[in-house]
Design a protein around this nucleic acid. Structure first.
Length: 740
DNA sequence: GAGCACTGC
């Protein structure tokens, strides 16, 4: 290191130290460590900006919770959060990322045997419990952002409760060895202490107790505390500036129009600061953008300094980036800004100093979906516009139908949104509904586990040895969306059990089948796709099915911008298969792989080959992000399949084999044509239509199988392949065998 | 001839 480098190093170290000390949690270090020592379970309520996610693991490490090679695990609901927090903590600790501090998420493991503080997604830890049910390498598990109540968080909390119980019993087992007689009369069980009623016996192994810390941002600590036998809750102050909440006088009928008016009201009447508008979806964002642009032109010239940035998850990430302000030192972003200005407003100039002076006079309006509620934090926001609605996924367990509906937000959600205005200074939030309406909102959003298909969750629990899934202690038992709460929970669970039985994962008395059920549980896929892979080995088309399930597991592969509809349609013809969407997807995957292979053969480096694949995607109207994701899934699943000992066979030109395999796998989703051109689902009897995005749209196949059933304007099925009706009784006799 | 909030293994 040179002298200046050293100086820089110490300066930055000092700066980090100062920042750490100024965090609200810093003064509570002693108290919290003490509470963790005293209590096996602790609830920590800390508002945004308290520093709990970065500081607490470091406190515990310092206090010796990693002795004897034990690990502190911290779960996050999102991948990006796991990465960024781990990076920050590694930097604060002055260690290389992946050494003492690391993270592990799907497709990206930055840990090593020396990792002691490990950040990960909650879903990943859930997977880990399958391999190590007692989480033996962890001394502490911290579940962060528990208030978000993702399915993974909820299941994890239930499991952790059991792990804790099992581990504390195991450590005191020499004192309470129960001499119970086993049911079949053998004496063997005598020697093996039962650790827990739910987890498999721990076979005499001893574990130190597991410390559990549940961290939540909301004030709803009581729910968590009750769930964990009255666990103690510690509150930590956040660092949030006051936000003025303003309501309308009347109920607005058109929330888009109301948002539009408010944007201009802020622009013309309020002081400087950027605006964040919460909208329900891409379409609404696009129309507001269009309308604002139209109305800007009617303003006087010196009031036209408004610029808009849409943000939603389907937007390519380089476009998402635009909403983040340029850092004065960041040249790349600055040039980006110049680009935008040139493109949108035809601004000339090369002088960055001038540009920044100029930029600061601009009024930024960010039009965002929910993505800006938790996933992204956009700096510089002073005003929030909250129409009070959100697009939410709903699931009807009776019909198995999913739909997306626009519904009112919860109070917690409204609070979260308004909080976005107070990150850097006092702010204002405009709620586009009267105050009286606010009090009518439900307290918090219905946890995801109550509005999703439970097949996967149930399969995982079964694989962990939880036999009584109905009695499993979920934090809040799935309920409340009908007038018979308990019945609804039961229906959701029974439906899942039934489904898993039909897929052959469970026996009639609800035990995991061997090997099929176990194999299915090991694959990180929808149970029905996992089964399809196993079935494929009987039809010698594992290679094709691997591609199909990988492609079906990701967001839409085809990208169809409205303004280039014809071009996109033509591009898709190159891949289309007359047999249906599954083969079309296989064709896309293979074409991209061939393209990449050619590039590499001609001497391109991996990176430049990947770049040209991006270009290939653009040319072919393929969503590059989705394809990359599918390729990742594909290689991960292929690894699992090989480990399971299945041979990766291809049916080659015998496409009929693959179609028969699809029939044998997705027989529950078969449908036959009605006289009027609609289709009737063989299993449930619903009347559905082929979605216009399918290659089979407008064709008139007699019998088909499909993978998705969604309700939008109509009940649509997507991802469809033509089959022969006679295959159903032949390949799924257990379901379609003729009566007598 | 439709339209899809957000995550995750």
């Amino acid at each position: 290191m040179t002298y200046t480098e050293k100086n820089d190093y110490y300066a930055s170290k000092q700066r980090i130290e100062q920042q750490r000390k100024s965090l609200p949690i810093a003064s509570a270090e002693k108290r919290i460590v003490e509470e963790v020592r005293k209590n096996d379970t602790l609830i920590i309520v800390g508002e945004t900006g308290s520093g709990k996610s970065t500081q607490l693991p470091q406190f515990l490490f310092k206090a010796g919770f990693c002795r004897e090679g034990k690990v502190i695990g911290i779960t996050q609901p999102r991948r990006v959060a796991s990465i960024t927090v781990a990076k920050r903590v590694a930097e604060e600790s002055g260690v290389e990322l992946g050494q003492r501090v690391g993270y592990s998420i799907r497709f990206d493991d930055m840990t090593s045997p020396s990792t002691r503080i490990k950040y990960m997604t909650d879903g990943l830890l859930l997977r880990e419990t399958l391999l190590d049910p007692f989480l033996s390498k962890y001394s502490v598990i911290i579940v962060d952002e528990a208030h978000e109540r993702t399915v993974h968080t909820d299941v994890l909390l239930g499991l952790l409760k059991n792990v804790q119980e099992a581990r504390s019993q195991s450590s005191s087992q020499q004192f309470n060895l129960e001499k119970t007689k086993s049911s079949n009369g053998t004496m063997l069980d005598k020697e093996i202490p039962q650790c827990s009623s739910i987890l498999k016996p721990c076979q005499g192994r001893k574990f130190p107790p597991l410390k559990l810390i549940v961290m939540s941002a909301s004030l709803d600590a009581k729910g968590f505390s009750d769930y964990f036998f009255g666990a103690k809750a510690v509150h930590i102050q956040g660092r949030q500036y006051p936000v003025d909440i303003l309501y309308t006088n009347h109920v607005e009928t058109d929330f888009l129009e109301a948002a539009l008016i408010t944007i201009f009201q802020i622009h013309l009447e309020e002081g400087p600061g950027d605006v964040l508008v919460f909208l329900t979806g891409q379409e609404e964002i696009e129309s507001v953008e269009r309308l604002v642009k139209e109305r800007i032109r009617q303003l006087s010239e010196d009031n036209q300094n408004m610029i808009m940035f849409p943000i939603y998850s389907a937007l390519p990430s380089e476009k998402q980036m635009l909403a983040f302000k340029p850092a004065p030192s960041g040249f790349r972003k600055a040039s980006l800004w110049l680009d935008i200005k040139r493109r949108y407003y035809n601004v000339q100039g090369n002088n960055f100093t001038l540009l920044f002076a100029f930029v600061s006079l601009w009024f930024e309006v960010i039009l965002a979906t929910n993505i800006a509620e938790t996933s992204l934090t956009i700096p510089g926001i002073k005003y929030v516009i909250d129409p009070g609605v959100v697009k939410a996924r709903c699931y009807n367990p009776r019909t198995g139908m999913e739909s997306l509906n626009i519904v009112p937000t919860s109070k917690a959600q409204a609070l979260q949104r308004s909080g976005r205005a107070g990150r850097e200074g006092p702010g204002k939030c405009f709620r586009l509904y009267p105050e009286s309406e606010f009090s009518k909102l439900v307290e918090s959003t219905v946890p995801e586990i109550k509005r999703c298909n439970l097949s996967n969750v149930i399969l995982q629990l079964k694989a962990l040895g939880v036999d009584d899934v109905v009695g499993f202690d979920f934090m809040e038992k799935p309920s409340r969306f009908t007038s018979f709460p308990k019945a609804a929970k039961l229906i959701a669970i029974v439906k899942a059990l039934e489904h898993l039985f039909l897929l052959g994962a469970l026996t009639e008395d609800s035990k995991l089948t061997s090997p099929v059920g176990h194999q299915m549980a090991r694959l990180p896929l929808d149970p029905i796709y996992a089964k399809a892979l196993i079935v494929a080995s009987e039809f010698s088309c594992v290679e094709e099915m691997l591609i199909a399930v990988a492609m079906l597991s990701v967001e839409s592969i085809f990208y169809t911008p409205r303004e280039k509809l014809d071009e996109a349609r033509n591009a898709r013809k190159n891949f289309s298969s007359l047999e249906g969407d599954h083969l079309t997807l296989v064709n896309v995957f293979r074409s991209s792989a061939e393209f990449l292979e050619k590039r590499k053969m001609s001497g391109s480096k991996d990176k430049s080959a990947e770049r040209s694949l991006g270009k290939w995607c653009k040319d072919n109207f393929i969503n590059g992000r989705s394809l990359r994701h599918a390729r990742d899934v594909h290689s991960q699943i292929r690894g699992h399949v090989e480990q399971m000992g299945l041979r990766i066979t291809s049916c080659g030109d015998e496409i009929v084999q693959f179609r028969r395999c699809l029939t044998a796998s997705f027989f529950l989703n078969a449908a036959s044509k009605q006289p009027d051109g609609s289709y009737r689902v063989c299993a449930g009897g619903q009347i559905v239509r082929i979605h216009p995005s399918s290659v089979l749209f407008r064709t008139k196949a007699e019998c088909i199988i499909f993978n998705e059933l969604v309700r939008t304007n109509d009940d649509y099925i997507r991802n469809i392949t033509i089959i022969d009706q006679l295959w159903l009784p032949e390949l799924a006799p257990q379901y379609y065998a003729p009566q007598n």
